[in-house]
């Protein structure tokens, strides 16, 4: 059985790696150069119009009027998209129940984390374990529901991806591995949850020992297994396309919903980008590796034969 200082080192290092991986993803996406506008309706933040897909351009002389924006509408839109998988429901009903199950499973398990931290803080404060009973009961229900939903979702998706031609031909080995890995998190979780006599109490105590850096920390094997699988998954997650939870912010806010007019900062960035040399090879581009994008884009055309 693993015990002692290994746990805090392992868990906090893993969390740090997850944060670093996530930050790397966020930074690598956010530091991309400003791009040409490529929005796609509906854009829910357009107040009074977003619901049916309308934009500011529906206004006569739109540049003269105020850009009325809703803060709530995009949040509501994304909430339905994230928690109910609206797009999948609308366009892929076969996949939706399993995908929804898997995602709800993940959300519920994530939700149990701060609850366990709350239990840990209460225990670390010297309060008796019985004071956390209600909190642990809620956590237990959320956890069991999450594990079961997650398992059913992952199993369903694995079966669909293995059986249905459309999905099978596009699913790579890593696609199956990612699902199986996530399934292992859920499976080890429900196994520990149902096998240990006081699962939430044990996890609460474990969390308390972690945050107090208790060197005598020790947990049962089944919980160790669940924690190790979950932590390894956490480290792996940002480096896969399962990190679409990060990318989704950018695909929606930086591309689909990005109807921001230019400002001074963007103009500076655009001038910098357009001033850099271009090296496309086709004759009509007339790039030589030295001439800039703006020089090329503003010059007169030349005759060019297509093949």
């Amino acid at each position: 059985m693993i015990s002692g200082i290994f746990w805090p080192v392992f868990v906090f290092s893993a969390i740090a790696l997850f944060v670093i991986g996530t930050a790397y993803r966020v930074l690598s996406l956010s530091r991309q150069p400003v791009h040409l506008r490529w929005e796609l309706s509906p854009i829910p933040h357009v107040k009074g119009r977003g619901s049916y897909g309308g934009s500011d351009f529906e206004e006569f002389e739109w540049w003269k009027g105020p850009r009325r924006r809703s803060l709530l509408a995009p949040l509501a839109y994304m909430a339905v998209e994230i928690f109910l998988l609206r797009s999948v429901f609308k366009n892929n009903k076969r996949l939706w129940p399993f995908s929804l199950g898997m995602h709800l499973g993940v959300y519920l398990i994530i939700l149990t984390a701060p609850l366990y931290v709350a239990v840990a803080i209460i225990l670390a404060g010297g309060m008796p374990s019985s004071d956390t009973n209600s909190l642990r009961e809620v956590t237990y229900v959320l956890g069991v529901t999450g594990y079961l939903l997650g398992i059913s979702g992952v199993l369903g998706l694995l079966v669909l991806r293995s059986v249905v031609n459309d999905l099978r031909s596009f699913t790579s080995a890593s696609g199956y591995f990612n699902l199986a890995f996530l399934g292992a998190v859920f499976l080890s979780g429900i196994n520990a949850c149902l096998s240990l006599p006081d699962f939430t109490g044990t996890v609460g105590q474990y969390a308390k020992d972690l945050i107090t850096l208790d060197p005598t920390i020790s947990i049962p094997f089944l919980l160790s297994l669940h924690v190790i699988i979950s932590i390894l998954f956490l480290i792996y997650l940002p480096w896969t396309n399962m990190s679409h939870f990060i990318a989704k912010y950018f695909t929606y806010h930086s591309v689909r919903w990005n109807d921001a007019p230019r400002d001074a900062k963007m103009d500076t960035e655009l001038r910098r980008l357009m001033g850099r040399p271009v090296s496309w090879s086709a004759g009509h581009v007339q790039a030589d590796g030295d001439r800039s994008w703006i020089e090329i884009a503003t010059e007169k055309a030349t005759d060019e034969k297509t093949p």
Binding site: L29, Q32, P33, V34, H35, L36, W38, S87, V88, N91, N92, L95, S99, D166, L167, F170, T171, S172, G175, N241, S243, H244, A247, K248, F250, T251, S254, V255, L273, R276, P277, V278, S279, W280, W293
Partner: peptide, 23 residues
């Protein structure tokens, strides 16, 4: 960035995050 600043971010997002769900 030099040659394709115009659509680099949308392209990378579309290349890297497809879930192959066929939705």
């Amino acid at each position: 960035r030099e040659n394709n600043w115009t659509f680099l971010q949308p392209l990378l997002l579309s290349l890297d995050y497809c879930a192959r769900c066929q939705t």
